[in-house]
Amino acid sequence: MTDLTILEERFQAKIDAELKIEPKDWMPEKYRKNLIRQISQHAHSEVVGMLPEGNWITRAPSLRRKAILLAKVQDEAGHGLYLYSAAETLGTSREQTIDDLLSGKAKYSSIFNYPTLTWADIGAVGWLVDGAAIMNQVMLCRTSYGPYARAMVRICKEESFHQRQGYEIMAVLANGTPEQKEMAQDALNRWWWPSLMMFGPTDANSPHSAESMKWKIKRQSNDELRQIFIDRTVQQAEVIGLSVPDPALKWNEATQHYDWGTIDWSEFNNVVAGNGPCNKERMVARNKAHDEGAWVREAALAYAAKKLKRKAA
């Protein structure tokens, strides 16, 4: 046996024994790469996700809603920070990770390439988008890489508040005036299918899945998580009197799950390829913030260096 195989076997044994992998531990290069890709994508999603929601802060319909939305978007920025730090433990700098986003090399969740057109979209995003993200994130609290799992535990505590505030917005609208109800239904119609796409390709078409499962980076498959989400969310929609825009949706007594229609994967691929409604705007906004912030970051560095020099003198 070569040294490498021995290391790999030990690594797998650790994972099988549910022990966490820590930054200083030996790990296969592909495990490291896979994690860097996943964690940085996740970090970018938190940050880009601030844009569609930030879009409504100044127009929130009550001071209470405004404060809640501010707090939520602030949480998302915090999540971005935890995750950039988690990615750094794998030996990639935050600057490099962010540059990859800005150059278009790194991806973020496609869901944030859809626009928030009305106030109800803020409800739909919290309810459905955070709701779908939570499914993934709860699973990731048990992921095999220690820093990622610990970041997720902190994040999950905040995410359930995000989902609840979104659902509450929808519930109030659905029980409000006819115009408000229409606004809520329209938002659900537009966000439903993109939310289902958030779980990623079907298991049969998921390129990274098998390895991620073996290494316990992922612990449940895309399709499993998607089904749990559907089962839960359809019932929540019923409670507030909104209808899920899927004519094939039907409770299946035998499987104890909902049967449902099919995702339009051509739309998904199109958005991933950069042709969603807001891909360009999102990248322009991130690049603009970064470019216009350059002199600010330079000033902070220059000042810190001067201070250090004065201390030494």
Partner: peptide, 27 residues
């Protein structure tokens, strides 16, 4: 709050949102 998502660094996005929240709370 107009800065939200457009700050020069993520830490400042958080700091400005925090201020916006404090001000709105007192208001």
């Amino acid at each position: 709050s107009e800065w939200c998502g457009h700050g020069p660094v993520l830490e400042e996005d958080i700091a400005l949102t925090n201020r916006a929240l404090d001000h709105i709370g007192e208001a």
